[in-house]
Design a protein around this nucleic acid. Structure first.
Lengths: 146, 146
DNA sequence: GCCTATAATGAAACAGATTTTCATTTTCAA
DNA sequence: TTGAAAATGAAAATCTGTTTCATTATAGGC
């Protein structure tokens, strides 16, 4: 169901999994393929339903376990959306942030400004030591504006 | 258990609830009082436990329903933290953002810069119409740094 | 290419959080 | 004070996510 538009990235992920000591199994390949090619964040159950079209014996437990592996390696990240808190997506890199369509869920990766000036000022004013930040934008994608 | 340090805000919330057509019941008053005075985000079960100290007959279902009402009116907002995705907090206003202590959960509200330049650039580049944004900082509060 | 140790899988049981249902209680306007 | 309607709380039902364990599949050694 998911067209493999980017075999290279799929192969990269599989290579990294193998290097990290994981075995490349059929269920793993199916899940990786779907995630690499998904234009939007997917929840475990969605991923399970999509995966079973390719590999009917797939179990939901395997989906959870595979997501854990991929998250541990930094290949996917969890996204918190209004419609669900356990949605997974190809991970952002460096200063990339997410822009999500509130209607169809489509995800756009954008390079954010350097916000360190804001963070430093806030740290000083509050007495906190800042460890990490989280910036996400929500809106309507070009298709969903009509 | 929660000292009423700001009766005015509690009264404001209750007034807004009444104006919106909701009845002011004992369970509602207890829950509002706890939320207004909490220094950190609370989950439904925590709120339930705290609430029962003041009003032992309180039911968990009522906590859920009350949180829905308060969220609908924009008085509280859901916060997504590592330790839980269904935590509720007094809502931010205007350009306020959240700074959360990853150890004790203490919340600090800070006025963020105006990020509209970033948003406009992103909107233009992506074709999205941006509806809302989400900026949260995580760190250690002054007390938890030792 | 075949064997084998062991990692990975999937079914079922389990645990928790959230929602629904419905009889009873409480609020508030007349 | 009274009664219609909203709100409540107990119990049952749902939905997610986790644990357990017997079976299957992978990858390295031969």
């Amino acid at each position: 169901m998911s067209e493999n538009t980017d075999p290279t990235l799929t192969d990269q992920w599989l290579a990294q999994l193998q290097t990290s000591g994981y075995r490349l199994t059929q269920p793993l390949r199916v899940i990786v393929d779907i995630l690499v090619n998904s234009p939007r964040a997917l929840g475990p159950v969605e991923l399970y339903d999509l995966g079973r079209k390719e590999y009917p014996r797939l179990g939901l437990v395997t989906v959870y376990r595979t997501l854990d592996k991929l998250e541990e390696l930094g290949l996917v990240q969890r996204v918190h959306q209004i419609g669900g808190c356990h949605m997974y997506l190809r991970a952002t890199q460096g200063h990339e942030h997410l822009l999500l369509c509130t209607r169809c869920g489509q995800v756009c990766y954008f390079k954010g400004d350097d916000l360190s000036a804001l963070f430093n000022a806030t740290a000083e004013a509050s007495g906190f030591v800042i460890q990490e930040h989280w910036l996400q934008l929500y809106g309507l994608c070009a298709n969903c504006q009509s």
